[in-house]
């Protein structure tokens, strides 16, 4: 193994290594943004969509960049990403149609 790879000084030149820094900053910003929404905004469709979208973005960033599934086996990548497509959709549906979903899930009619 080449000794220059053992040197920490070579690390900052790595593209994907540096990209992780930016991904982390975006994730921090999205989390703090969600917290500000939690503290200030009243419930609304727009707020719900923004929160659901934020979950999708954060999930995709972790799956693609931290978990490194961007070029992994397509079944694994699809399954993980599917989770973060479906959940935001369910969040919005529950906000839009709570009575309908309550009726569908009621045991006694």
């Amino acid at each position: 193994m080449n000794s220059n790879l053992d040197s920490q000084s070579t690390m900052p030149t790595l593209t994907s290594y540096k990209i992780l820094d930016y991904v982390w900053i975006v994730l921090m910003a999205l989390t703090i943004g969600s917290a500000l929404v939690a503290e200030s905004a009243e419930p609304s469709l727009l707020v719900t969509i923004v929160i659901a979208f934020t979950i999708g973005i954060k999930g995709r960033l972790v799956v693609d960049r931290f978990m490194e599934l961007r070029n992994a086996h397509p079944y694994i990548r699809f399954a993980m990403n599917f989770y973060f497509y479906m959940l935001p959709i369910v969040i919005v549906l529950v906000f839009l149609f709570p009575e309908t979903i309550a009726d569908l899930t009621r045991l006694k009619r």
Binding site: L5, L20, M28, A35, F66
Partner: peptide
């Protein structure tokens, strides 16, 4: 306690970031 929830989130996201950095470092042999 929203502050506790936010701090938990920041701690876990940062932990994932550290793991990703560790994987990248191993691939470099460091």
């Amino acid at each position: 306690n929203t502050t506790a929830g936010v701090l938990n989130t920041l701690a876990l996201l940062t932990s994932s970031f550290f793991v990703a950095k560790a994987m990248s470092s191993v691939r470099k042999g460091n």
